[in-house]
Write a protein that binds this DNA or RNA. Structure first.
Lengths: 108, 108
DNA sequence: CCGTTGCATTGACATCCATCGATGTTAGCT
DNA sequence: AGCTAACATCGATGGATGTCAATGCAACGG
């Protein structure tokens, strides 16, 4: 039987970091949080999320923690309240991860 | 006690579709497959993946199915072999989902 | 102080997901 | 037809993930 094809070369890049970043984003509530922070162009208090989302407070805190640990948001406690902000390079980091994936073949 | 802040407005967009698309991508092996298809700029045989990845054949098939159902790749059976190709609008669909999230406030 | 309020953390549970062995299906070869 | 090869599907299993009640902790007000 013939070969199936000219043996294609599977890329060997380590996509673990990129996958981790995308995993942190791949949730409707976390996307809502990111979008809110992006459109606000400013800090947003945690209570705004707990008020607006159909989630209990611990769950909101959980999602915010994931975004925080992914480096996509930063938080700042002032008094009793905690304010979240979109990390300056959040969009850039995601774009970079995608560029790593979708880049075309490099022509010599 | 004072209010925490001028009540920020949480966006009400439905991010389920976007999250679904990102979830389909948020895996290192699936990113590897997409990157391979992108750099190949051509079809890639399933056997190339089963050869190159440390996964059994059913697992490779599983990941390809997820990408297929997300509309990110297409497949074409020719004889015994099945060739996968990056969907033409794959990159655009992901970019659109991200644009939905990271768009700044619309100034009236 | 003491009670309250806002948020984080813990522990438990249910569900989803990645992986693989076994089996099914389709195509080619003799 | 019978055999083999390539890929898909099924079923089971272990690990990851989303959710919430209970608890902890820090900051304010009385």
């Amino acid at each position: 039987m013939q070969r199936c094809c000219p043996p294609a070369k599977v890329v060997e890049t380590d996509f673990e970091p990129a996958a981790g970043l995308l995993k942190a984003i791949a949730d409707p509530y976390r996307l809502t949080m990111l979008a809110t922070l992006a459109t606000a162009e400013d800090e947003v208090c945690v209570c705004d999320f707990t008020d607006a989302l159909p989630l209990n407070q611990p769950t909101v805190s959980h999602h915010l923690r994931i975004l925080r640990e992914a480096g996509l948001v930063t938080c700042d406690r002032r008094g009793t309240w905690v304010y979240y902000q979109l990390a300056a390079d959040a969009r850039a980091r995601v774009d970079h991860a995608l560029a790593l994936v979708f880049r075309k073949k490099v022509h010599a």
